[in-house]
Amino acid sequence: MKKSVSSTAVGTAVLLAVLCGTAPVAVADEQDAVDVVAEASPGDIANAADVALLDGGPASLLIDGLSIEVPEDARDGLSISAGAGAVTIGLPFAAAAAEGDATAPGTATYDNGNETSSVVVVHESGSLQVATVIDDASAPTRYDYPIEVPSGASLQASDAGAVVVDAAGEVLGAFAAPWAKDAAGRDVPTRYEVDGNTLTQVVEHDAGYAYPIVADPVYTTSTVYISKATVKQMYQGMNGIGNVCTVLPVPYWVGIACSGFPGRQAVEQAYWQNKRIKVSYVSCGFNYCSYNTFSVVS
């Protein structure tokens, strides 16, 4: 099932959040997991994409040229374009999770069968959030996210958080520094641990904190590559060759070439040199000032 969502940035952010609770069970039972996330971070749910995920199967979305896959089976993980391939982010406790349930637009919830749920939120801006909602103080303090990376790439710890780098050392995407706060707004100690290609967020919660607790790192895709075949279509679209712009569906990068965009010079050069284009997303923290750069590569 293919869906398309428009936004203003190529970067795709992945927000990995953990909500931990020792509130009375009656309170937890009265709240849908998405509602818990909405209370902890209202802007995230308010900015969810207005699309129905898991509408009869896994969701495949195209956001600013990036592919995002939200699975029905949690064991399949979340797939996001990165470099010339994709990064797949596994969900905690996925082996025991029930099939995903879409309870609100742009969201999917997985019951992990251990008093926790994973809530995926796809934002209109192109960011992707994963929140773990935990119902009581006996919940785990460690949340493993196995990361599948493109061939030759690896997950590495960084001063700020963690990064996915390719064989040449170029950063394809990054996890921002983790943070965690309880329901009273107090900081909760949290950190990342990297073991191979598994990212673990440790949240040192206990009954001394007010629940639920929210821990929220961010993953941003930094680099994607436009193939030679797509470059050719973009060049044809810019120059009115072969009615490329009128053949539906028009691929994202071809579509923006048809309407004119800042990468025109790179397309012209790549077309005549038979090369690819590297698109790098530069984030200033806000959509209105974030931008993409286009460079020609072999």
Score class of each variant (00 low, 15 high):
185 G>L: 00
113 G>T: 08
184 A>K: 08
116 T>D: 09
170 E>A: 14
161 G>T: 10
160 A>P: 01
119 V>K: 02
182 D>W: 01
159 D>R: 14
134 I>A: 09
122 V>F: 03
155 L>E: 05
178 P>G: 07
137 A>S: 07
107 T>Y: 06
143 Y>S: 01
93 F>R: 05
99 E>H: 07
168 A>Y: 13
93 F>D: 12
147 I>D: 02
106 G>M: 03
116 T>A: 02
129 Q>K: 12
156 Q>E: 15
189 P>G: 11
138 S>Y: 05
117 S>L: 06
132 T>S: 05
93 F>N: 05
170 E>M: 07
93 F>H: 06
156 Q>H: 06
128 L>E: 10
100 G>L: 10
80 I>Y: 05
188 V>A: 01
168 A>P: 01
116 T>Q: 08
179 W>K: 04
117 S>N: 10
188 V>W: 03
152 G>W: 11
155 L>A: 08
92 P>W: 00
124 E>G: 12
87 V>S: 09
111 D>G: 00
110 Y>G: 03
124 E>I: 01
148 E>S: 15
141 T>G: 05
100 G>I: 06
183 A>V: 00
158 S>T: 15
157 A>W: 07
119 V>W: 04
139 A>K: 04
106 G>D: 04
121 V>R: 08
96 A>S: 14
183 A>N: 13
146 P>H: 05
159 D>S: 15
143 Y>E: 01
181 K>C: 02
89 I>A: 09
81 S>N: 09
134 I>E: 11
153 A>P: 10
161 G>L: 08
128 L>F: 05
170 E>F: 08
182 D>K: 03
184 A>E: 13
123 H>K: 11
136 D>Y: 08
182 D>C: 00
89 I>H: 02
153 A>Y: 03
90 G>Y: 03
111 D>H: 00
96 A>R: 01
168 A>F: 10
114 N>L: 03
171 V>K: 09
